[in-house]
Design a protein around this nucleic acid. Structure first.
Lengths: 344, 344
DNA sequence: AATATTTGGTTAAATGTTTAATCATTTAAG
DNA sequence: CTTAAATGATTAAACATTTAACCAAATATT
């Protein structure tokens, strides 16, 4: 026995008013006496009316629905990245506080984004899109409220949130240097990324170079490995860097899970962290503190990053003017067991 | 310059037909000659028409939108659980293949679920709801297509997906026994859960008892610790169990991240895994293979579980009849470094 | 007292679809 | 040749809202 849903019309009839009046009460618009307003509110309460959002959306051309877009989410690789999960719980949390719902959407290069229009989405958050992706242009052309996370896009008009990645790269490198090492191996994300000068890893790479320069350590291309960001990538990079290792060497992996994989890989090759070599990661996912050895890393406040993104998005949607369209969140060095002073 | 969106009406005018005909072409319904159909299709293609899903939803009372509901998602605890992320990527992947979108929603006990009706959601997937939660009744009363994951609900009418948790508990325990231990500590999830006989951990607990019984090892309540499922929980449980440990003891933690925390905690107390004690986990999240020591665990195919759930949900939505409403996925023992034979 | 303004509402159009009912026209059947 | 059925399309209602335009009554202003 499916009971028909109660509409504004039913409420109006019962309250002996027009539907316009009910609508006005619902939206606190127009003029309606407190008396009738109360009567209507009571009936609404009693009968358990809830609005039909499709109808509302049709009329208003909005939806109170946001989309978090993760390029290539459906590729298995992403399952390995707790980073995203933290960001997304942050976003969901911020959105729900403001009565928005969140759609999670993976897209690929050839995908069409019509669903954004079709569903009257109020805004989107795009995580980690490449500067050169043809998706980027498509997204910008949508002209929807939008926030880009973890991308470094030149356009001043775009809203962007990321951590201070350059500082992170700098701090990490400097830490390793300060421990007495002068040969710092950098293991970064997806191949080609650094050269394409897009994304967070390039910024971290710049920080790396800055720290080297300040310490008057010559930069060498041979020490920068672009391996990918997964645990497996880290694992296999152990073999590749084995030849480079000596007493002066320390390793900076630009993701914690990559570092975990690397440590494991080194272990199997007979190299122990930190006694044989110091290794640090990046992100400070919650694992780092509980590994054996616990992992020195650059902390970014991931959950908060998600919330900042939603703040920025909602401000756009509501038309609030903002001083700054680009938010750069602080990072911090977290020293733990995986890095130790060079024992001459 | 915001250009007005093209509607079915515009297409109709341009093709010199009624809007009904265009609609029929769009939905492959009604009778329309291939000639006009082609003409209309061409214009649609040319002008880049895309439907207004709000209008459609209003008329059809559906949305091609699903919700994954995670009770208490917004509690920080969930950020620590890569398990969910894997499930959800599985769900999203399955949904997008069938042209559905996925909303991610956290809810709390007192929350109202009106959004499900309001948005005309086509179905929902609920992860890990408690048998005694008052949310459960609310959800069932919605009478929407629904799949419950990782809950053991008695109602035969409900669609459910989970792994064979009882077997998992059995296999893990049996493995430890087979290594020569006769005192098996069980560290499980949220306090009270086992006693309330709901959820996956209770099933695993039953398997644990079965394995003990088969081996004629007396069961003791003292060896079952209900600590919670996070890494921090595992970490602090180290202290609590320290008094119980002896040469005959092995530990079965009902989550991998809990096991990681425990191993770390034990380490800090001077107990090394596996040389001093064998520890195994549960889930086989991708970390397990890369930890040092790598973690013996019970593997469940998490991503696949998400996809199975979506299959079950879509079958309901499409009205396909199903032989079986309950899917129990296989589990497997994965022996790694964290458990070793008892050295008498 | 006459006029202007405010208050508290109503009417009706509009939003973009789907679909049942209807209607010509063409084809098939008797 | 007449009638029945099939084909291809149109009309108009319905879905649940919002909102601009309008209106009557009450109150304020001159």
């Amino acid at each position: 026995m499916i009971q028909k849903k109660i509409t504004i019309k039913d409420i109006a009839r019962k309250a002996n008013v027009s539907i316009a009046t009910v609508s006005n009460v619902l939206n606190n618009k127009g003029r309606v006496s407190t008396k009738t307003a109360n009567k209507i509110k009571q009936i609404i309460e009693q009968d358990g009316y809830t609005p039909n959002l499709s109808a509302r959306s049709l009329k208003n051309k909005n939806s109170h629905l946001l989309s978090v877009i993760v390029p290539y989410l459906h590729k298995g690789e992403f399952q390995d990245k707790p980073y995203f999960w933290q960001v997304i719980t942050g976003i969901e949390s911020g959105a729900r506080n403001e009565n928005f719902h969140v759609m999670l959407t993976g897209i690929s290069d050839d995908e069409n984004l019509s669903f954004i229009e079709e569903r009257h989405l109020d805004g989107i958050i795009v995580i980690g899109i490449d500067k050169n992706s043809n998706l980027l242009e498509k997204i910008i052309n949508l002209n929807k409220p939008c926030v880009f996370m973890d991308s470094y896009l030149d356009d001043e008009k775009l809203y962007q949130v990321h951590s201070n990645d350059r500082l992170g790269g700098y701090l990490g490198t400097k830490h390793l240097i300060s421990l007495g090492y002068n040969k710092i191996i950098l293991i970064s994300g997806i191949t080609g990324k650094i050269k394409k000068q897009s994304g967070v890893d390039y910024q971290r790479y710049l920080g790396y170079r800055q720290a080297l320069a300040e310490a008057r350590i010559p930069y060498s291309d041979q020490l920068v490995f672009e391996e990918g960001q997964t645990m497996v990538n880290g694992y296999y990079s152990a073999q590749k860097i084995l030849g480079c290792l000596d007493d002066n060497t320390a390793i900076f992996v630009l993701s914690d899970i990559g570092a975990m994989g690397l440590i494991r890989g080194l272990n199997e090759l007979g190299v122990t962290v930190p006694t044989d070599i110091s290794v640090m990661g990046y992100d400070d996912i919650f694992y780092t503190n509980y590994m054996v050895p616990s992992l020195t890393t650059i902390k970014q406040d991931i959950f908060n990053k998600g919330q900042k993104a939603i703040d920025l998005l909602l401000a756009q949607i509501k038309g609030n003017s903002l001083e700054e369209r680009k938010i750069s969140l602080p990072v911090e060095l977290r020293i733990r067991e995986s890095t130790i002073k060079r024992s001459r």
